[in-house]
């Protein structure tokens, strides 16, 4: 299939991207690697009249040690996240989760910023960011602001990044000694997760987030609370689907997904504790 025609605007800086967004308003979409937006455009589920190509902004592809956290430029490719030594030592789950996105060719092209800004509940990286307690930097006409991951995903394919803002950086706290696990259950290796679980356990603190268990990437609050109040893995995992509204599709109905979430949370917590 073929995208509808659009005007193409190329920018060489985040500031220029913000300016272009201001000029074109809701008609415009930012495109980085294009691996979230172009598939929608090919089916004409998205038909922006202006595409702002941010893929050539030179200084937004980086993975930096920022003291207590690692800062990742929004245009950093999945492949770079997957193979980065700093991440592998300080935030190994994020590197691993990046290796689970799509397939190798997708990972060569898709960006972490694009994936997170898209906010797809079935996507891997948003759940990892939630479980890790990360945040993002949104740049707008009035400067930068930091949005905690917990506040980022506001609705189906909607985020707290405003329409005149651009997501420029992802921040993940260092967690070198933490136990972690990413459980992705899908029918084919290249598929989105039917259900996925990202779990981090660090000195008694736990971060657990779920993939494809509702309209947004979502924290398993009930599981986290139970763990905080001393519940064992089994008991905590039984709460995995509490408050969730999982989708009904060919990969499973809500009841099956609720069960799967419990199984996968249990496996994740067990692995993270090992």
């Amino acid at each position: 299939m073929i995208p509808a025609a659009f005007d193409y605007v190329e920018v060489d800086s985040a500031e220029a991207a913000i300016a272009a967004l201001g000029q074109h308003g809701d008609e415009a979409k930012l495109m980085a690697g294009g691996h979230s937006l172009l598939p929608l455009m090919k089916f004409r589920l998205a038909s922006p009249s202006v595409v702002i190509d941010i893929g050539r902004i030179a200084d937004l592809s980086y993975i930096n040690d920022a003291g207590d956290h690692v800062a990742i430029g929004a245009l950093t490719k999945h492949r770079a996240v997957e193979t980065n030594e700093l991440l592998k030592s300080q935030v190994p789950m994020l590197a691993h989760v990046a290796s689970q996105v799509g397939d190798p060719s997708v990972r060569h092209r898709g960006t972490i910023g694009g994936s997170i800004a898209h906010g797809d509940p079935a996507s891997d990286l948003p759940a990892a960011l939630l479980a890790l307690g990360g945040s993002v930097v949104a740049k707008g006409p009035n400067g930068d602001r930091v949005i905690p991951a917990a506040d980022l995903f506001t609705g189906f394919l909607e985020t707290a990044v405003a329409s005149d803002e651009m997501l420029t950086e992802i921040r993940v706290p260092k967690a070198a000694g933490a136990g972690w696990s990413y459980q992705k259950f899908n029918r084919r290796a290249q598929d989105w997760a039917s259900v996925g679980v990202a779990a981090v356990r660090n000195n008694g603190a736990s971060g657990v987030a779920l993939v494809n268990m509702g309209p947004t990437p979502v924290v398993a609050t009930a599981v986290q609370d139970a763990l905080a109040s001393g519940a064992d893995v089994e008991a905590a995992a039984a709460l995995a689907a509490d408050g969730m509204s999982p989708p009904d599709d060919l990969n499973g109905d809500p009841a099956y997904r609720a069960h799967l979430a419990q199984v996968l949370v249990k496996r994740a917590l067990t692995e993270a504790a090992a």
Binding site: M1, Y8, G34, L38, K42, D53, P104, S105, H108, R109
Partner: peptide, 27 residues
């Protein structure tokens, strides 16, 4: 295909495989 699923369109950009159905020529 039309969903970046099949890989028949795989080429290398800068030596790395990419699915050329999911890249604009201008990119």
């Amino acid at each position: 295909c039309d969903t970046s699923s099949c890989g028949a369109c795989t080429v290398h950009i800068g030596g790395e495989s990419v699915k050329s159905c999911t890249v604009l020529a201008v990119q």
